[in-house]
């Protein structure tokens, strides 16, 4: 893919460059587009592994160093719901309890059966647990119930924080590039190089390498001023596994083929293990829309209980883009294999040390 230069956008939209440029600026301003890298979190361990095993001259060296580091390779994603039994702490108290931790990437207040949702990325379950213990200790005056689940598959993404990227065992140039792109995904390489004391040529090479290997999936954006601030989470809790699995693929295929506009409302979808099911983060233009969405879902999805929780305020991080192209999801790949949707051409992944 050539990427979105004004030139290529103008070719794609079949519009003159000057018009394209002015509409581009308008769109960026209107929605507060903030360009960020989408990082393949599942593949981080491979890059870290290659890095720590490189330049190891003896077996002994490899063994000692690798053994010490292997348990910490890669990252895992989690979602935590918190319910306060009596009083709910105020925003400042929650933010204070979160500070100094690199584990939470997105935190929002909820209204309904849960009070708080936290999307976490941690190097190990131990790190996640350490965060959760300290978080609840920091809010020890409040009586709370914590429910955490490992995220298995995702659709869409939530931007991650530079504090977390900094903790990854990637090369200095890879971290500089990813952090620089996280600040401004369309920013010039020479500016990123200057900010992080790197050579621009090295960063360009790193970018090619990370794109080729798939660690840097693409540069996308989140909306700092979204069209609407009506956000929520739909909980799909499985009650009958076989009924559910049958209807699940039908639901995805219908979304893609029959209601392609509907998935634009789905900001982020993830499979969770506890309770076994799916969470769908949605962004809606009106409150009435939620009933339609839930009705559509309940018609197709069988063997599951479907409930809705309103997101009242984002305290940390940002929800991902609202214009996600479903063809780039793992779910789409799965449906492709089953022959339920048209095939899409994709690049092969290459990992170089």
């Amino acid at each position: 893919m050539e990427g979105a230069s004004i030139d290529s956008i103008s070719k794609h939209l079949k519009m003159p460059k000057a018009t394209t440029y002015s509409i581009f600026n308008e769109v960026v301003k209107e929605y507060g587009l903030h360009f960020v890298p989408e990082i393949d979190l599942e593949d981080i361990w491979k890059h870290e592994f290659i890095r720590i095993s490189k330049h190891k001259s003896t077996k002994r060296e490899m063994r000692e160093e690798a053994l010490a580091k292997i348990p910490e390779l890669g990252v895992e994603e989690y979602i935590t719901f918190i319910k306060f039994n009596k009083e709910v702490p105020n925003d400042e108290e929650i933010l204070r309890a979160l500070s100094n931790f690199t584990v939470p990437q997105f935190v929002a207040k909820l209204h309904g059966e849960e009070d708080l949702v936290i999307y976490e990325v941690a190097k190990s379950f131990y790190n996640l647990n350490k965060f959760l213990i300290n978080f609840s200790k920091n809010l020890k005056d409040y009586n709370m119930l914590v429910n955490t689940s490992r995220i298995v598959t995702t659709f869409g993404f939530l931007p991650i924080r530079n504090e977390l990227i900094d903790e990854l065992m990637l090369s200095g140039s890879a971290k500089a590039l990813l952090e620089g792109l996280n600040i401004d995904g369309r920013g010039e390489i020479k500016e990123i190089a200057k900010r992080f004391y790197q050579k621009p040529e090295l960063l360009l090479y790193t970018m090619e390498r990370l794109k080729e290997s798939g660690l840097l999936k693409r540069i996308t954006y989140f909306e700092a001023q979204p069209k609407s601030n009506i956000n929520g989470i739909i909980k799909i809790a499985i009650t009958n596994e076989s009924d559910f699995l049958d209807s699940r693929n039908k639901w995805f295929a219908e979304l893609i083929k029959i209601r392609p506009e509907e998935h634009l409302k789905y900001v982020y979808i993830c499979d969770i293990l506890n309770p076994s099911g799916i969470l769908v983060f949605v962004n809606l233009s009106s409150n009435e829309e939620i009933d339609n969405l839930l009705n559509n879902m309940r018609k197709v999805i069988k063997g599951a209980e479907i409930s809705y929780i309103t997101m009242t305020k984002t305290l940390l991080g940002n929800l991902g883009i609202r214009n996600f192209d479903m063809r780039y999801s793992n779910q789409y790949k799965h449906l492709e294999l089953e022959g339920l949707v048209p095939k899409v051409q994709r690049k092969e992944k290459k990992i170089r040390a």
């Binding site: 990427g3 939209l13 693409r218 540069i219 996308t220 954006y221």
Partner: peptide, 30 residues
């Protein structure tokens, strides 16, 4: 062209631009 149609057309263009930018929002080699 009546203003209302122009407005609708612009909204379609904006949406297509957003979709395009979400797939790969960066221009190469800068």
């Amino acid at each position: 062209m009546p203003k209302i149609i122009e407005k609708e057309k612009k909204a379609i263009i904006k949406n297509e631009m957003l979709r395009f930018l979400s797939i790969d929002g960066r221009s190469k080699h800068r």
